[in-house]
Amino acid sequence: MKAIVFILFFVLRVVVNIPDVRGQDDGSADTDSLAARYAGYEDNEKCFTCHGGTIYEFTNPESGKKMRRLMPKSRVLSKKAFYNSVHHNFSCTDCHSYEFNTFPHPSELIFEEYMNCIDCHGGDEQFAEYHFDEIQKEFEKSVHYSQEGNGFSCWKCHNPHTYVPIARRTEDITTVVKISNNMCLNCHTNEEELRLFSGAKELDVSSAHDWLPNQTLHFQSVRCIECHTQINDTVMVAHLVLPKAKAVQKCNECHSQNSILMATLYKFKAKEERRTSGFLNGIIINESYVIGANRNKKLNTLSIVIMLATLGGILIHLVLRLIFIKNTKHGT
């Protein structure tokens, strides 16, 4: 038995690519090294004094008393997450009004409008490979924009303070799936969040996908956007979120030789890794197994050869029986 397991393991190691799972930077560097690494660090420390935690303290200028207040959840920012994000070199006031440097903040700052990705990255040649303009076009055609208009923005799904292009940086597809799906579920399963910008009702994800076999496995293995967006070859992650009625419901759109997963979830890997493993859509199999989409060409050919040899053997045996023992009775 051990020998069989060993042989199986060996065969699999040969025919399958083992992924190089690179660790992510956890941003656990100390304060001094952070100051040396990030341009806006010292400026930002003033903001993080209050916004880096859930409680902030200040001295009341009239009474001289020390006050402790709860910071609203939406105003709290993890320093670690910020310095791990793509915008880590920014000072807070690069995007926010300089007036925020005064405390208490002037009340009119409540009207400050948030910048969207396209405000900085529109026509941005430095980040041309991200195709921000194309993403914006897609977004403007999406169901989110058509239903909510300007009430919906990049911010609803992507937090610029903590943003990491996860689909490009993470080897582990399960993590990509989890982070991506949490973006959708944060609102669609949370009426409180949803009501901020929509009259839509909280979604019972499980009932809405009643038709889908092995629901849990699907939700862990693929992103919502695999079925709920229109494929776009230019951008890495499709942003044209479709109306419910247009979502993919045919199993073999994924479960087939021409699986759309190769143009969606596994797109980046497919582009990066052109190694051939012998498996059809072999990139998928390091993470999962998609019935119908993964076939090993050699094993398939071998199985057909063995089947034909068996049928040929039977045919020859049958012919020999007819020739030699036409009238002879025999028993097994």
């Binding site: 993919v248 030789q257 190769m262 980046f268 497919a270």
Partner: peptide, 30 residues
């Protein structure tokens, strides 16, 4: 299931969506 036929988007090995092909099934619907 194993030989589930192509349908919807025809995708190249590099992940590029080539065209939208007719729906098809092998023996029966998946």
């Amino acid at each position: 299931m194993h030989y589930s036929a192509a349908s919807g988007w025809l995708v190249s090995s590099t992940g590029k969506a080539v065209s939208n092909v007719e729906n098809g099934n092998f023996l029966m619907d998946f």
